[in-house]
Design a protein around this nucleic acid. Structure first.
Length: 648
RNA sequence: CGGGGUGUGGCUCAGCCUGGUAGAGCGCUUCGUUCGGGACGAAGAGGCCGUAGGUUCACAUCCUAUCACCCCGACCA
């Protein structure tokens, strides 16, 4: 079946997918007039991936583009990104950072300076080799003018920034350098998903340089805290802060920290990363400075990033079978006013009343200005506050009220005001909130910014608590590997804690239904006989999560809190090894310790059909396994800073 | 890169096996009746069937190649 982002009329039972934690129920108590609703959105139970795409489409967030793996971020989706930028940027500034911009193109030789960089990025770099085009003689075009040194399109900017910092830094007085860049980057991904993993994506990458390791470490953690703050207090996404195990952190970093969020399908999603790069990059690019005690030393650098992937996380955390749900702090449209009328005389009176209500929220001046700007447009958009967020009045004549209700609901608008003749007669309004779902008649006089702010704050709070409750209900703790395996067999969704002591409150979930997840037991089959939830995507829950036991169905991730981490690297290494040991291979064989048999490069080598080389390249995996802190001092392969790769 | 699937009006698809004038529903436009959770009637517009070759009197349909997208794997953290 050809997948599409287009409208997909679907009628299906609206069944709750997940065990509804308190407050999660989103069906209103009163029966709906029609059994059909959100007919253009596949329920989560039926096909989680399709649901995700349907929500994006119904909300007008993004489209596929003519270029494979790339997307068009539509105005409504981009506005969410702008909201995120606003919140993040304010926090970056508040922590002393400034913005700058570095080139999109990077000399290929820069990448080669870091052996690990080459290994980590060579496969996924877009390379510019020509300077122009010429007719190919067949009516088309062909590249012309090969350039001397190929340029790569930045997959991340450590190299070019390292080169630049080397010129900026001479004395300890030049430090620290605290720079952030808002940019796009390109990684030639094999498989893509809207927002979660696209070949080109938008992000910010912070790059700092410091006098000491301690300072760099503090910076790394500070920015992780900023990310967690934004995730939880802006996006209402509860996150775990964690330190990556040796195999997971990239080799160029002394340490990699991440925030991880749980999606509604129970899988974790890496939502942001922060790296303490040590002196690896400063040595590669010779970023030296004269110290306070008259010596010469290499600086200590960090990098940290989050990307438009956060929008994917946002969608998968809060949205429901009725469409997008947005936390008010990033919702581009905060409220939609929908007038209801029949006759023309009714229409005039209702519209006048609707505008009065609008003015009560945003001010008469703002309404007048917006009318001048909007011109003949059928949707009047008025700014609310100074964030660029808006309140809209839906004046479209062609649509009936219910159509408008669905329209705004699916776009994640937190509050809707329905204004009809009855309300006019009573000087009241029907106030509908998306979360929690409620419909209340409110007196017109009560419609004030204070009332509105309160409603938005309530929604914001509820979204976070709901997500937190969901995560708690889906989480198990275990103290040793055996318990870990048992838990994972019993419960398909599990986050956190294997092999001991991470993340406190271990008893939190003990005794909760250890049984299976509805997803697991109620799982049906589609007409091709596939299990709807068996095809995990790669965008989330895949590489970030590690598979233990059975592939795909059971995933778990190790997280250790950065701030009270008691585990040693050895612990983490054991986890890595354990996971690797148990990870089934695609060919069905059990992995062995034979270096020639263990390796991520397997597929690549099969492509080349060269079994000899396989052994060589596979050995790398073994090295990875054994690599610990000792290896960090030396440049290893693979690494790259914002390991935020799948962006986070 | 390997395996599987799908390309037909804006969307979802039928038609293909068994070659013979391009179809349906939804959406869109206009008019009327409607309007508090996705209305109804009437009249319209809109497609060289992904692309390129081939077979044939004739191809959406058969053959070959190619491109794109989706799923699985691999790569990637």
């Amino acid at each position: 079946m050809r997948p599409s982002l287009g409208k997909t009329p679907r009628i299906g039972p609206h069944v709750h997918l997940f065990p509804p934690p308190p407050g999660w129920e989103h069906r209103p108590p009163q029966p709906r007039r029609s059994a059909r609703m959100a007919t253009n959105i596949t329920p989560r139970t039926k096909d989680y991936n399709q649901w995700y795409l349907d929500v994006i489409n119904a909300a007008g967030m993004a489209d596929y583009s003519p270029v494979r793996g790339c997307m068009v971020i539509k105005p409504h989706g981009y506005a969410v990104w702008e909201g995120l930028q606003r919140e993040l940027d304010a926090r970056f500034k508040a922590t002393g950072h400034v913005n700058a911009y570095f080139p999109l193109f990077i000399p290929m030789s820069f990448l080669a300076k870091e052996a690990k960089h080459v290994e980590g990025f060579a496969m996924e770099c877009a390379v510019v080799t020509h300077s122009g085009l010429e007719p190919d003689g067949k009516g088309g075009l062909k590249p012309k003018g090969e350039i001397e040194e190929p340029l790569i399109v930045r997959p991340t900017s450590e190299t070019i920034i390292g080169h630049t910092y080397a010129q900026w830094v001479q004395s300890w007085r030049d430090l620290p350098i605290l720079v952030n860049q808002w940019a796009n980057v390109v990684r030639w991904e094999m498989r893509t998903r809207l927002f979660l993993r696209t070949m080109e994506f938008l992000w910010q990458e912070g790059h700092t340089a410091h006098e000491t390791w301690d300072e760099a470490e503090a910076e790394t953690r500070r920015m992780l805290d900023v990310y967690a703050d934004v995730a939880e207090n802006v996006l209402a996404i509860p996150v775990h802060r964690g330190r990556k195990s040796p195999a997971e952190r990239f080799a160029g970093a002394d340490d990699t920290y991440c925030i991880e969020a749980m999606m509604q399908d129970g899988k974790a999603l890496q939502a942001g990363t922060s790296h303490n790069l040590g002196q690896n990059f400063s040595k590669a690019f010779d970023i030296k400075f004269q110290t306070r005690d008259q010596k010469v030393a290499h600086v200590w650098t960090t990098s940290w990033g989050v990307s438009t992937r956060l929008i994917g996380a946002l969608i998968m955390t809060h949205s429901d079978d009725d469409g997008l749900v947005l936390p008010p702090k990033v919702a581009p449209v905060l409220a939609a006013i929908v007038p209801i009328y029949r006759k023309d005389d009714e229409k005039a009176a209702v519209l006048a009343y609707a505008k009065e209500l609008l003015a009560r929220l945003v001010g008469a001046d703002a309404v007048a200005r917006a009318e001048a700007v909007c011109g003949g447009r059928e949707i009047l958009e008025v700014p609310y506050g100074s964030t660029g967020q808006r309140v809209v009045l839906d004046l479209r004549d062609g649509l009936r009220p219910p159509d408008k209700f669905f329209h705004w609901e699916q776009r994640g608008v937190p509050v809707r005001l329905e204004v009809g003749p009855k309300d006019l007669a009573n000087r009241a309004v029907m106030a509908v909130t998306r979360t929690p779902r409620s419909k209340n008649v409110v007196s017109a006089d009560a419609i004030t910014p204070a009332w509105f702010d309160d409603a938005l704050a309530t929604a914001q709070k509820m979204l976070f608590e709901r997500a937190l409750a969901f995560r708690a209900a889906q989480t198990r703790s275990c103290d040793d590997y055996a318990a870990f395996k048992t838990a994972i067999e019993e419960k398909p969704r599990l986050l956190r804690d294997a092999l001991g002591r991470h993340e406190g409150n271990r008893s939190e979930n003990q005794g909760r239904n250890q049984g299976h997840h509805p997803l697991h037991s109620a799982r049906g089959r589609d007409r091709r006989g596939r299990r709807p939830h068996s095809h995990e995507d790669s965008g989330h829950g895949s590489r970030v999560r590690q598979t233990l036991g059975r592939p795909r169905d059971f995933r778990a991730r190790l997280l250790s809190p950065p701030n009270d981490s008691t585990e040693t690297d050895d612990d983490l290494r054991r986890c890595d090894a354990a996971r690797r040991r148990d990870r089934p291979r695609s060919d069905g064989r059990r992995p062995t310790r034979d270096p020639s048999r263990v390796g991520p490069a397997q597929a690549r080598l099969q492509v080349h059909g060269d079994p000899v080389r396989r052994q060589v390249v596979s050995r790398q995996r073994d090295e990875d396994r054994l690599a610990g802190r000792l290896a960090r001092a030396m440049p290893r392969r693979r690494s790259h800073p914002p390991r935020c790769r799948r962006m986070g």
